[in-house]
Design a protein around this nucleic acid. Structure first.
Lengths: 257, 257
DNA sequence: ACCTGAACACCGTTCAAGT
DNA sequence: ACCTGAACACCGTTCAAGT
């Protein structure tokens, strides 16, 4: 063992705070959390890591790569923590809520997710929800569309929620922000905006997290509804006992043709 | 009439190409369409309008306001063109597709919609879909959540689709882009990413517009599914005859308490 | 009221030069 | 291989000064 760790020994003989990709991403997350989305610049990052900004760009090519790496670190740890061994709809809800809570804690993640398609973090979410559709009873031909629907809903909320957080500071300001927005909706011409005018009171008092979960449930309900492909089968939101076990990879990958 | 048009006569006596908010927004849209999202700068706009960039910022305070105005102009004209007098689900589909097509023609609109919550353009979409929910049979208490779900789905796709368009040039490149992405999904470790690995072929051949419509239909199906509030009532996607007329504003605004 | 253009305070990225 | 720091080519925004 002493022999095999030669290279890691050598790296540990450098300055303890050697500049690594990992440390850069970590510092970027700290900076984004504490200073907001505008707070991440190569110069600020360089100051925090006590180096030049050119040094950072030797490890990470550009800002896009840095943001994707930071978002993936947050989403990866959020999705990994979701309880396993529950029913498929429960797992989908769990993943969705984990993403929501991650964005709530790190609003810049929401901006980043909705900014770049199919970045690693987005793929994780797609896989997380898509992997449950087989066990949920959605037929092979409809799974891609169904997963895409859930993903786009999650990303849509991610963007909106992040934008809201960007606008207001946090928590307490939210009440005032919603009250102000609800007042503006209430003042809208009922002839031109009857719906917005009508739901203004609900806007003021609603809980984003609950509304998000309601959206997930609505889409889950649609997947098993009569009229949707694969819907109408004797499989309500909760699958029949005995089918809740997550199928192994080989079963999932059985070609459908 | 000659007397009442005095002020408009006076303004028409100015240079024909007087700098107005309208002309600025129009030029901004042209610039965004032709040069892409990065093409809109106050300097480029000033050059095109043959003035200084300070002059523009006298009419429009900042870039955010300019982008919102441009997006609203596009969405407004798109939503206005949707056929009236059809069934509620048909109208929701029509509005959703109008938004999709507008983003397809002006990808920067997708970026802008997903960037800022409750800007005028977003409110138009929200009203457009939300206004159909009553006639669709969604009970009062569930309408806000339902409209929000549809809206977030649309905005999620808006952001992703715009990001895709930002990445690739247009049309023909799309085939290559999807083929490349599908190949990468296919190469993913089936043990870690079974779902993405499995749907890779579908990703390569899918049509974004059809998938978008499938998502709208899935959510519509959920609204009338058993298990969802108001679902299970004898009201399939198409409401019973005689209830399809859009209720007038006073009926819609009846307080529910 | 409307427009000008210089000045300010930033950005991300590049790159020759060092160790 | 890894890091430095100056230089480049931009931004949006502000603002005293004009007409």
């Amino acid at each position: 063992m002493a022999k095999t760790t030669r290279s890691s020994e050598r790296s540990s003989q450098r300055r303890v705070d050697a500049l690594t990709r990992e440390r850069i991403v970590e510092a970027a997350i700290d900076l984004l959390d504490s200073q907001g989305e505008g707070g991440l610049t190569f110069r600020a990052l360089a100051a925090r890591l006590e180096t030049g900004h050119g040094a950072i760009q030797w490890h990470i090519a550009n800002k896009n790569e840095l943001l994707q790496a930071a978002a993936d670190a947050v989403i990866s740890s959020a999705v990994t923590g979701v309880a396993d061994g529950v029913t498929p709809p429960e797992r989908i809800r769990g993943i969705a809520l984990a993403v929501f809570d991650a964005i709530d804690a790190h609003p810049w993640v929401g901006t980043e997710l909705s900014r770049e398609p199919w970045q690693p973090a987005v793929l994780r979410i797609f896989e997380g929800v898509g992997g449950q559709l087989h066990a949920l009873g959605v037929p092979q031909g409809a799974r891609f569309d169904a997963a895409s629907t859930l993903l786009n809903f999650i990303l849509g909320l991610a963007g909106q929620y992040a934008a809201g957080a960007r606008l207001i500071g946090h928590a307490t300001d939210r009440q005032a922000f919603l009250a102000d927005l609800a007042a503006r909706w209430s003042d809208l011409d009922p002839a031109r905006y009857p719906f917005a005018h009508q739901v203004a009171p609900q806007l003021r008092d609603h809980d984003d997290r609950e509304q998000f979960l309601a959206g997930v449930d609505l889409i889950l309900a649609g997947m098993t509804a009569p009229g949707y492909p694969g819907g109408g089968v004797p499989c309500p939101i909760r699958p029949a006992e005995g089918t809740t076990k997550t199928p192994d990879a080989s079963a999932v990958n059985t070609p459908s043709a």
